[in-house]
């Protein structure tokens, strides 16, 4: 989990994935035959393998949701845009890191003392919030940050509870970490590992990567919605922490390839790997554009359930992650033994 720790603490808001890419490059180097970056910034790591076997694209996105500085006010406070889907309610009292120099800032809100109780019930819209970096004037702020700088949540990675991990951006650094684990194992299946960009702002990186690589089939790894929490009913959980990796059925952007899904289920059952279906059709992921590329590509998604995604801190269970990796490895082995979707 050292890899996940470092990935989680790297910053890579959609459109600014450089830091994460650099880190992943370092991890993937020993396991790659070829590595390149495309026009959008996708990192494509190829492992050649047996040319008679189908080429499998495995993809996870590097980017995370975050903020972008839009304007520096006269008083030195910063206005910002959201990048990706963030619930405004998680923003107040967040700590962020801005730009290449990781300038620290806090998202301020009026103190309770200065509010009427009736205000507490209202959601503060993000464009009424600001980031305070401690600068006391526009001039002072301009020395540290500029409009267009990205800001990421500042959250330390750590352990908690019974085998759980907490950190930011598990959506989709958990997927990136799964992908790296798989790259580090031995397989004869030709692998096209793609660490994609700009998933959170419209599934953009995967679209061009799949076009370029023309894989025979594709698997997407996600850190996905998990709502097994109070005030949520069982049929609204989507996934349950600790019940194993989640196999997608359908979401807003794709219907998972049923041949791949049933093979995953079969392998999980035969090998006693716990798994669950992702019991929600909300949201979308890179499988959407990938499966519609060119003539169409058989594609499925396997995810690690993560609570509180798209916020400053998310939680996952290590065993779900490990079982996800195991399931994918079994799947790749089954391709070596002749499985075709």
């Amino acid at each position: 989990m050292k890899i996940l720790a470092r990935l989680s603490e790297a910053d890579g808001v959609a459109g600014d994935e450089q830091q994460v890419r650099k880190l992943i490059r370092e991890f993937a180097e020993p396991h790659s035959d070829d590595m390149r970056v495309d026009a959008l910034g996708n990192l494509m790591v190829t492992r050649s393998g047996d040319p008679d076997l189908p080429a499998v694209m495995i993809a996870a996105h590097m980017d995370e949701v975050g903020l972008m500085i839009s304007h520096i006010q006269k008083n030195g406070l910063l206005k910002f845009y959201k990048v990706g889907g963030i619930d405004d309610r998680v923003l107040p009292s967040s700590v962020v890191r801005i730009g290449e120099d990781k300038v620290a800032g806090v998202i301020g809100a009026k103190p309770v003392h200065a509010q009427k109780p009736s205000e507490w019930k209202k959601v503060i819209p993000y464009d009424k919030m600001f980031i305070d970096i401690g600068a006391q004037s526009e001039d002072e702020a301009q020395k540290k940050v500029k409009p267009g700088d990205y800001a990421a949540f500042a959250t330390e990675f750590g352990e908690m509870g019974d085998g759980r991990l907490k950190g930011k951006a598990f959506d989709d650094r958990a997927g990136c970490a799964m992908l790296l684990e798989i790259l580090s194992a031995d397989h004869s299946v030709p692998l096209q590992a793609v660490f994609t960009v700009q998933e959170e702002i419209g599934l953009r990186g995967s679209q061009v990567a799949a076009w370029d690589l023309k894989p025979d089939l594709a698997l997407v790894f996600e850190g996905t919605t998990c709502a097994d929490i109070p005030e949520s009913e069982e049929h609204g959980y989507s996934t349950t922490m600790g019940e194993g990796p989640a196999i997608s059925i359908m979401d807003r952007t794709s219907v998972a390839h049923r041949g791949i899904v049933s093979q995953l289920v079969k392998l999980a059952e035969e090998n006693d790997v716990p798994f669950q279906f992702r019991r929600s059709t909300a949201g979308g992921n890179d499988a959407g554009p990938i499966h519609l590329t060119r003539e169409g590509i058989p594609t499925a998604t396997v995810s690690t359930p993560c609570r509180y995604i798209h916020s400053p801190v998310s939680v996952l269970k290590e065993s779900d992650f490990e079982n996800g990796v195991r399931l994918i490895e079994l799947f790749l082995q089954s391709i070596e033994r002749g499985f075709r979707p």
Partner: peptide
């Protein structure tokens, strides 16, 4: 194809 429903949970 036609529209339809998909089962997400069995209680």
């Amino acid at each position: 194809d036609e529209i339809g429903l998909v089962v997400t949970h069995i209680d």
